[in-house]
Amino acid sequence: MLNELKNLISKEILLEWRQKYSFGGILLYVVSTVFVCFLSFKKIVDVPTWNALFWIIILFASVSAVAKSFIQESRGRLLYYYTIASPQSIILSKIIYNSFLVCFLSVLSLGVYSVMIGNPVQNLSMFFLTIILGSLGLSSVLTLVSAIASKAANNLTLMSVLSFPVIIPLLIILIKLSKNSIDGIGWSVNYRYFISLFSLDMIVIILAFLLFPYLWRD
């Protein structure tokens, strides 16, 4: 299983490297969205606005980044996967790969954000932990939903319709946590939010692990 996972993840990276245009497209999406926000807001002094805007940008960027993980797979390649790998390792490898992708996107948008709009974050280490756990949660929800949506017609619209209501609990905890780390509130207050964020991530991953085999072969 571990070996299989390693191979599948390296395959994902290789594929991404071969299709650089899609990766570049997402990077450009993040940068240009932040630039549009910069032009419309100029400077954001209000912390809740900064925070909400940041997470909305990440949400949309990660929906378009993760959506392709099942939707864009060709039929032939899916048939090939059926023969070589178990569904569990497929979903886990996709979740791991996508969470690195979303994490990278979040850090990138934080960078562009701090260059253009300003960076009010006071407790950076806590903010990064929020980003890491948040990327894990976002990518696991979106990967499972992308697997569901890829079975239906009209799947890109369906992707956001299916994922947004499900993702809201995660987003609320994330916004709360990042608000606290912007304000520089200490670990003693925040540890319980981290625990609930982490357990939510685990619930989603376990559900994806259990449910994905039913989606796999049809």
């Binding site: 929800v141 499972l144 569901i148 079975k151 239906a152 299916l162 209501p165 499900v166 609990p169 619930i203 989603v204 559900l207 449910l211 039913y214 989606l215 049809d218």
Partner: peptide
């Protein structure tokens, strides 16, 4: 099958 999977997932969320 697909809607059963979504139903279980979304109910727990």
């Amino acid at each position: 099958k697909v809607s059963a999977v979504y139903n279980i997932f979304s109910y727990i969320m």
